[in-house]
Computed example of a mutant assay.
Amino acid sequence: MPDSNPAIRVTAMPADANAYGDIFGGWLMSLMDSGAGLVAARRAKGRAVTVAMDGVEFHKPVKVGDEVSVYAAIEKVGRTSMVIHTDAYRRERHSEDEQLVTSAKFTFVAVGDDNAPRPVDGG
Rank of each mutant, 00 (worst) to 15 (best):
83 V>K: 10
35 G>I: 15
2 P>V: 13
112 G>S: 06
47 R>L: 08
64 V>E: 06
27 W>R: 08
59 H>Y: 08
78 G>E: 10
114 D>S: 14
24 F>E: 00
4 S>C: 07
118 R>Q: 06
115 N>H: 03
54 D>H: 02
38 L>D: 02
26 G>Q: 08
19 A>E: 11
122 G>C: 09
7 A>F: 13
113 D>I: 01
6 P>L: 09
1 M>H: 07
54 D>Y: 01
48 A>T: 07
102 T>I: 06
57 E>V: 15
71 Y>F: 15
35 G>E: 11
39 V>A: 13
111 V>Y: 13
102 T>Q: 14
24 F>N: 00
100 L>Y: 00
45 K>A: 11
102 T>H: 12
51 V>N: 04
108 F>M: 09
12 A>N: 02
33 D>T: 11
77 V>E: 07
38 L>N: 01
46 G>E: 05
37 G>C: 10
57 E>F: 08
97 D>L: 15
54 D>A: 11
103 S>N: 09
11 T>Q: 09
54 D>K: 01
11 T>W: 01
110 A>C: 09
59 H>V: 15
14 P>F: 07
65 G>T: 03
88 A>F: 07
118 R>V: 07
9 R>T: 15
90 R>G: 04
92 E>A: 15
88 A>R: 07
110 A>W: 08
94 H>I: 12
61 P>S: 04
108 F>E: 07
13 M>Q: 09
86 T>R: 02
65 G>V: 03
65 G>K: 04
112 G>N: 10
19 A>D: 08
82 M>A: 03
52 A>T: 07
87 D>L: 03
61 P>R: 05
18 N>R: 11
6 P>I: 08
73 A>L: 12
29 M>S: 08
51 V>Y: 04
113 D>C: 01
60 K>E: 11
68 V>K: 03
95 S>W: 11
51 V>G: 04
78 G>K: 04
76 K>R: 05
11 T>L: 12
121 D>E: 14
105 K>T: 06
1 M>T: 08
84 I>G: 02
113 D>K: 07
81 S>P: 00
20 Y>D: 09
60 K>R: 13
6 P>K: 07
109 V>G: 01
103 S>A: 12
84 I>V: 05
22 D>R: 11
50 T>R: 03
33 D>P: 05
18 N>I: 01
71 Y>N: 05
100 L>H: 02
59 H>P: 00
65 G>N: 05
80 T>F: 10
2 P>D: 13
33 D>G: 15
64 V>L: 08
79 R>I: 10
1 M>D: 06
94 H>Q: 13
5 N>V: 12
119 P>W: 13
103 S>H: 14
55 G>P: 00
46 G>D: 03
21 G>L: 04
20 Y>N: 13
117 P>K: 04
20 Y>H: 14
58 F>K: 03
83 V>C: 05
43 R>V: 10
103 S>V: 12
99 Q>G: 00
64 V>A: 08
73 A>I: 07
37 G>I: 06
119 P>L: 13
32 M>T: 02
86 T>G: 04
82 M>N: 02
55 G>H: 06
41 A>Q: 10
62 V>L: 11
103 S>R: 15
48 A>V: 11
4 S>Q: 06
87 D>A: 14
36 A>Q: 01
105 K>E: 09
72 A>P: 04
80 T>Q: 10
8 I>K: 05
97 D>V: 15
28 L>D: 05
52 A>V: 03
104 A>Y: 01
4 S>H: 06
18 N>F: 02
22 D>Y: 06
12 A>L: 13
119 P>D: 10
120 V>H: 03
